[in-house]
Structure formats: C-alpha cells, structure tokens
C-alpha cells in the first residue's frame, strides 16, 4: 500500500485528513496531466477539483491492482473525457487571459517538474496531439510503466508501446525544429 492508498483508506474510515493528504500530494501532477487534455490550466484545475469531488462523493472502491496514483489518474481521465464530451466546442479566450494562463502554467511547471530540462520538454509537448501529450506526460514525468499507462488510458500494453514510439517520433521532430538536443529520449 502506498501513502495515497492508506490516506484513502483513512478517508473511507471517516478521517477527513485522508483526503486532505491526497489533495496535497497529487493535485499538481493531476493538473498537469489533465492539462494534456484541455490545454488550459484553469480548466485543468477545475477538472482536478472535479476528480477529488468525485472521490469524496462517490467513494469508489480502490483495488490494489495498480498503484493509487494510477487509479486516481484513471478517474481524472474519465472526468476530463466527460468534460470534453459536454464541451466539444472550445470557448474563446482573450489574449490577456491566454497570457495569464500561460504564466500560471509556467508557475506550476516550475514547482512540480522543477528541472529546467523537464520544463522545456513539457513545453515542447504542447505542440503534440492530445493522446501523445498524455502518454509522454505519464511516461516522462510521472514515471509510469507501460502497464500503468495502459490502465490509465484504457489501452493494451502493445497499443501503449506503439503510442509512445509515435509520440516520441513526433516530439523528436518538434524538438528538431526548435534546435533542441534530445539524445536522452
């Protein structure tokens, strides 16, 4: 059992502190992951809250098949997909709002990803298509293995391997355009 699982167990037993710990530990990573779907850090923040509200209200059962983080990200993904189904058309964002959003995203990147190289990589990933962004985010920044990614994205391991390969190729070409060095990829 990792900390998330034990905190969740505490929460189910009536200790509100359990959910507080979960929010503290996972909120930033979840926002960046959900941002891969919606490309708007504010919306991603709302979706992060929706994910935790779903956890508190529905109290879904956690089976220890995968880690708590994998399970939480799966719920987050479902929340994001529900959101995208309801809001197919993108809302227009003003230039000022866009700057504000980018600024806040940069702040979150700095606090969560910390390393400069990771931050640059994360920014380069913005240009990729949504599925590539998600798979690379889980692989590079959350250190999920292929089985965990497959569980979150509801794909087979083989599909995930292919997806990662294509995503890396796409990222490589983006980095080439920017003149990045990418030998670590």
């Amino acid at each position: 059992m990792d900390n998330g699982a034990s905190s969740y167990r505490r929460f189910l037993d009536g200790d509100e502190g359990g959910i507080v710990s979960i929010i503290r530990d996972y909120k930033d990573g979840l926002i960046l992951y959900l941002n891969g779907f919606v490309q708007n850090i504010h919306t991603a923040e709302d979706l992060m809250e929706d994910t935790f509200v779903r956890l508190v209200v529905k109290k879904p059962k956690f089976s220890a098949r995968y880690s708590f983080k994998t399970w939480l990200y799966t719920i987050g993904r479902n929340v994001a997909i529900d959101y995208l189904r309801r809001n197919v058309r993108m809302l227009p964002v003003s230039h000022e709002d866009l700057q504000k959003v980018e600024c806040e995203e940069a702040g979150l990147e700095a606090s969560y990803l910390k390393e400069e190289q990771k931050i640059l990589l994360h920014r380069a990933m913005r240009k990729l298509k949504s599925e590539y962004r998600q798979v690379l985010y889980l692989s590079f920044f959350e250190d999920f293995d292929n089985a965990q990614i497959a569980a979150v994205m509801k794909k087979s391991k083989r599909q995930v391997e292919n997806l990662i390969y294509r995503a890396k190729m796409s990222l490589k070409s983006e980095l080439d355009k920017e003149g990045f060095v990418y030998e670590r990829l």
Binding site: V20, I23, R24, K27, E104, G107, L108
Partner: peptide, 14 residues
C-alpha cells in the same frame, strides 16, 4: 492558481 488549502476547502464544500 489556488493553493492546496483553498483546493481542499473547495473540494469539501462542493
């Protein structure tokens, strides 16, 4: 961006 205490309050209220 909200800090984590604000997020906790929002989540619990909602």
């Amino acid at each position: 961006m909200k800090d984590y205490e604000e997020v906790v309050q929002d989540v619990l209220r909602r």
